[in-house]
């Protein structure tokens, strides 16, 4: 039977590498961790982020699960690696101010990602992590464009600092 989880709140940045986005955006999240064994944790993560680039804003929220391996859990600086899957939903607005009108459109969607991350836990309380969420099922596949560039299967990198509550 699982014990009550460790709760870690996180704040950091998301670095998109898909569509038009080039700029990092803010990220906030929470991780729940259930100890399965001395070196293994089941984790659930939820986070929200925002991306902005030249008249386009995407607000996204992710829910995911994974496992975290901590080879040396008792060390004061304890490294860990984590693998997981998740779903990221988004709302996106684009807007362009043209002489005759402002053109805008809002879109909603979701992607499925596979994620890998690594980091360290410091004095059993603080956490620094880096991750990559790879889009394995994009929101849309090409139905018209049949060129060989602009692969939609990219993802975004994450960097965060966390505090265990």
């Amino acid at each position: 039977m699982l014990r009550s989880p460790e709760v870690t709140v996180r704040a950091g940045a998301v670095f998109p590498m898909f569509l038009i986005y080039e700029n990092p955006g803010p990220l906030a999240g929470v991780t729940l961790g259930w100890r399965l064994a001395q070196r293994l944790e089941l984790v659930a993560r939820g986070e929200a982020g925002a991306l902005f680039f030249d008249g386009i804003q995407r607000y996204q929220a992710k829910l995911g699960v994974g496992v975290r391996l901590m080879p040396w859990p008792k060390w004061p600086v304890s490294p860990w690696v984590q693998l997981g899957v998740g779903t990221t939903a988004h709302a996106e607005r684009v807007g362009v101010v043209l002489p005759e009108r402002t053109a805008s459109a809002t879109d909603f969607g979701a992607v499925v990602t596979a994620d890998a991350s690594l980091g360290v836990r410091i004095v059993q309380r603080f956490e620094v992590g880096l991750g990559w969420d790879h889009i394995v099922v994009p929101w849309s596949y090409y139905s018209v464009y049949m060129g060989n560039e602009a692969d939609p299967h990219r993802g975004y990198a994450l960097a965060w600092f966390g505090v265990k509550l």
């Binding site: 038009i20 560039e149 602009a150």
Partner: peptide, 30 residues
């Protein structure tokens, strides 16, 4: 038309005499 999108994706503008240094949106082909 897809070839024109790919043309700009693959374009390396290395000479000051050349133009066309644009980048169609990644994943925005459709």
């Amino acid at each position: 038309l897809d070839g024109t999108i790919d043309f700009y994706h693959n374009l390396e503008v290395t000479s000051p005499l050349l133009e066309g240094d644009v980048e169609p949106p990644l994943g925005g082909g459709d």
